[in-house]
């Protein structure tokens, strides 16, 4: 019996902006099981990005409980949180976030650097991850030498290289044309199906969200509709 990937109870997050308190999340209950493929969908300002940051352990909730892989994040120090990110979560960003002067192979290997994996093993695993996303021929290419679709696939390989439980993809197709967007979505779908890694998409596009098996609609800091609520 595996713990849920995420378990959120009455999660809130508010910011102080120039002395005014802004409630980005106002009480979210959410459970995402291992191996799920879910989309968080909502218009901009709905709180979906805040929710993704919390799930990704980049930020801490103002109140409520969040368990990641069964661990209550409130009990973790910043350092432990960083290690949790490294071990259990893979990020895919809208703008790829690759290191510009670094080869695809070294970009993919970066999470393993912070895990203390020796260089040779890092390279082996990074190569395998790039092969898995169909970029075996691009190992030494730098981001600028690759198309947007290829760059996002490198980013996906980087998210997968550490064998995470969850891949958090924030608008992964947002900077791609429709053909490359479809290709990236196919890849995420296939990875979810093949390796059993949970994938959580954050998007405002209904077509992209439609590729996921579960849709979680967020509006005004609350979950409005959750198709897969169990």
């Amino acid at each position: 019996m595996t713990a849920p990937a995420f378990e959120a109870v009455a999660l809130t997050r508010s910011y102080q902006l120039e002395g005014v308190s802004v409630d980005a999340l106002r009480g979210v209950d959410l459970t995402v099981g291992p191996g799920e493929f879910a989309a968080i969908i909502g218009p901009s300002g709905s709180g979906k990005s805040t929710l993704m940051h919390l799930l990704g352990c980049l930020d801490r909730p103002t109140s409520g409980v969040l368990k990641v892989g069964g661990v209550d994040v409130a009990t973790l120090t910043d350092t432990q949180l960083a290690e949790l990110r490294n071990q259990t979560i893979g990020f895919v960003f809208q703008s790829f976030h690759l290191l510009a002067r670094t080869s695809a192979l070294d970009n993919v290997a970066l999470p393993l650097v912070y895990r203390g994996v020796p260089r040779a093993e890092r390279r082996t695993r990074a190569r395998a991850a790039l092969e898995a996303v169909g970029l075996a021929h691009r190992l030494t290419h730098r981001p600028a030498q690759m198309s947007g679709g290829e760059q996002q696939r490198v980013a996906i390989a980087r998210a997968l290289v550490g064998d995470p439980q969850v891949v958090l993809a924030d608008e992964p197709t947002g900077n791609l044309d429709s053909r490359n967007g479809v290709e990236v979505m196919n890849l995420l779908t296939r990875l979810n199906a093949d390796s059993g890694v949970a994938v959580i998409l954050v998007t405002h596009e209904p077509e992209v969200a439609g590729r996921a098996r579960r849709q979680i609609h967020v509006r005004d800091g609350l979950i409005e509709l959750d198709t897969g609520s169990s």
Binding site: G56, L58, D78, T79, A82, E83, R85, N86, Q87, F91, F93, H97, L99, L110, P111, Y114, R115, R158, G162
Partner: peptide, 16 residues
């Protein structure tokens, strides 16, 4: 700054 944010997301600790 962006690179630092990325490294942190990938698991870099403050001391790294």
């Amino acid at each position: 700054t962006k690179e630092i944010g990325l490294r942190m997301a990938l698991g870099a600790r403050q001391r790294d």
